[in-house]
Amino acid sequence: MSLSKIIKLSWLICLVGIGLSPAYLSAQDEEGEEPEQLRTRASLSSVQKNNDAISLNMLLRAKIDDRYTGLPGLEVTFYTSTDSSEIELGKATTGEDGVATLTVKGKDIPRDTGNFMAFMAEFEGNDEFKGSDDDIEVLPASIVLEPMEEDSSLALKVILLGDNEPVEDEDIAIFVKRLFSPLKVGEGTTDEEGAAEVSFPMNLPGDNEGNLEIFARLEDHSDFGTVEAVLTKAWGKPVNQLDQELPKALWSPNPPTWMLLTFIILMVAVWGHYGVIIYKLFQVKKDGEAA
């Protein structure tokens, strides 16, 4: 074997050795351990309200520990698009539940030839998460909510208008705002005039003046998305918790009378004895000084 062949073979062995060395392998591993960006999933939805406001809600989630989890603190950009262009509506940041919300006015949104409003929301991505987007198209819709009071009953007349036409055979639910989540109090189906009458319960606890915040809602319609109307009426029972006289009970801030009396008697008996004893001790000291 010639010297040049021996040198070439030595180089080859060195290169293979280096290539298989633990250091090189571990370097490879370290490169492989670089954190991967997690894929995100975007879901855009809309709520059309009766003051021409449209609330755009973008839910951003990622699969963490095998569960889809809302991603807080990420910036989402909202757009509206026409056949020819895309206009930025604004930006919003996702909250603790992973939802970013932007409210726009319906009259400012351009329509396509079919009168649809097209919305798009995009998360551009960052070091941790890959970007994602979603889009929806909705027709303008609204709910007209009319209170109906009769002698001994309350009701609501609901009219659903989609693209300025009455919408028939849709279920509209009535809710009342409560402390945590809305309370469903009734439901009706619209007729050929887009109207439905829903009776309303009496004596629901309201605020200090009996006001209730009442919602009529069409949920997740394929053309209109969610449509909602809000009405405030003094149909509830006035409740003023601060002024309310709570009974003397175990659960209330006012203890039962017998318990208060027992406590006072025991305390007076014991501390009264202590008082007498301390007085006597002063007497002992005084007598000692006199002696």
């Binding site: 004895h273 004893i277 007497q283 002992v284 007598d287 000692g288």
Partner: peptide, 21 residues
């Protein structure tokens, strides 16, 4: 010792106090 000198009055006061406690 609160100036205790063993007088009759002091003994009486102390006896009452001890019985009370």
């Amino acid at each position: 010792s609160l100036n205790y000198q063993g007088t009759e009055s002091q003994n009486k006061q102390l006896a009452i106090s001890k019985n009370l406690i």
